[in-house]
């Protein structure tokens, strides 16, 4: 079974994100970047499927500027077999990425597509669902356990009320939740092996897709600073404040 994994390059989770002074976005120049943690979980799950003899080939795909190749290389060092880099300098949004992925999927014909449930930069939580929608495939989102059973996939999903188990007909799209697995580190020997694995470069034009953003960002601002607290003297004062200031009761 061929598995396709989508990976996104984002600001490293350990970096304090700063808003650009003109409010047009966040500062990414000279900021440490890394693979989106949910995408790491996606890669890890595919590698485990291959180690278990379920998956035969893992193709990692990333869409974006030249530096996305580094993120693909990380996926290869974790155990993916080859990479596909859809090169574009456009500021991609979920719908554009979903269309690009759909084109790559139609070309590659994987039986399973795994993506992160969301990326830690924009927290959209849309791409996986859109890919499934565009392809007309089954989808299992927020997965915390996956088991392939012949032509079906059993996915345990983390939903508001608890856990839900769904049975999906393959091919399918799965998005990963935190508890699915703990991703491995790219070991030094595997970093060396990854160097020799191929990364194919494609363009939106070659795929016949127009990923131009459909949404316009008006302004990006810092979240408001937390105000310092005050001590109340009596329960009555607390109730008064909750009712009239906070307006929560």
């Amino acid at each position: 079974m061929k598995v396709l994994v989508a990976v996104k390059r984002v600001i490293d989770a350990n970096v304090k994100v700063r808003v650009k002074t003109d409010g047009s976005g966040v500062e990414t120049a000279n900021v440490k970047m890394a693979m989106n943690p949910f995408c790491e979980i996606a890669v890890e799950e595919a590698v485990r499927m291959k180690e278990a003899g379920v998956a035969t080939e893992i193709v990692a795909v990333s869409c974006g500027g030249a530096s996305c190749a580094e993120t693909l290389r990380t996926a290869l060092a974790m155990g993916a077999d080859r990479g596909i880099h859809v090169q574009t300098d456009l500021a991609l949004q979920p719908l554009g990425v979903a269309k690009l992925l759909k084109a790559v999927i139609e070309k590659e014909q994987p039986k399973l597509v795994i993506t992160g449930k969301q990326a830690i930069d924009d927290d959209s939580n849309q791409t996986g669902q859109m890919v499934a929608g565009l392809l007309g495939w089954a989808q299992g989102t927020f997965a915390s356990k996956l088991t392939v059973e012949g032509e079906q996939l059993r996915a345990k999903r983390e939903v508001d009320g608890g856990l839900e188990t769904v049975l999906l007909k393959l091919p399918a799209v799965v998005t990963t939740d935190l508890r699915l697995n703990e991703p491995r580190y790219a070991s030094l020997p595997n970093i060396m092996k990854a160097k020799k694995k191929p990364i194919e470069a494609l363009t939106p034009d070659a795929l016949g897709v127009d990923p131009t953003p459909r949404l316009t960002v008006l302004k990006v601002i810092e979240p408001p600073k937390r105000k310092s607290g005050t001590k109340v003297k009596t329960v009555a004062e607390l109730v008064e404040k909750l009712r009239n200031e906070a307006k929560v009761i």
């Binding site: 890394a34 290389r73 060092a77 580190y185 790219a186 030094l188 970093i191 160097k195």
Partner: peptide
């Protein structure tokens, strides 16, 4: 000869993570 800036950076990145 088998190395590149990429392998150096990946090494440092893995070291930092662990």
């Amino acid at each position: 000869a088998d190395h590149s800036r990429e392998t150096f950076e990946a090494t440092i990145a893995t070291a930092r993570r662990i």
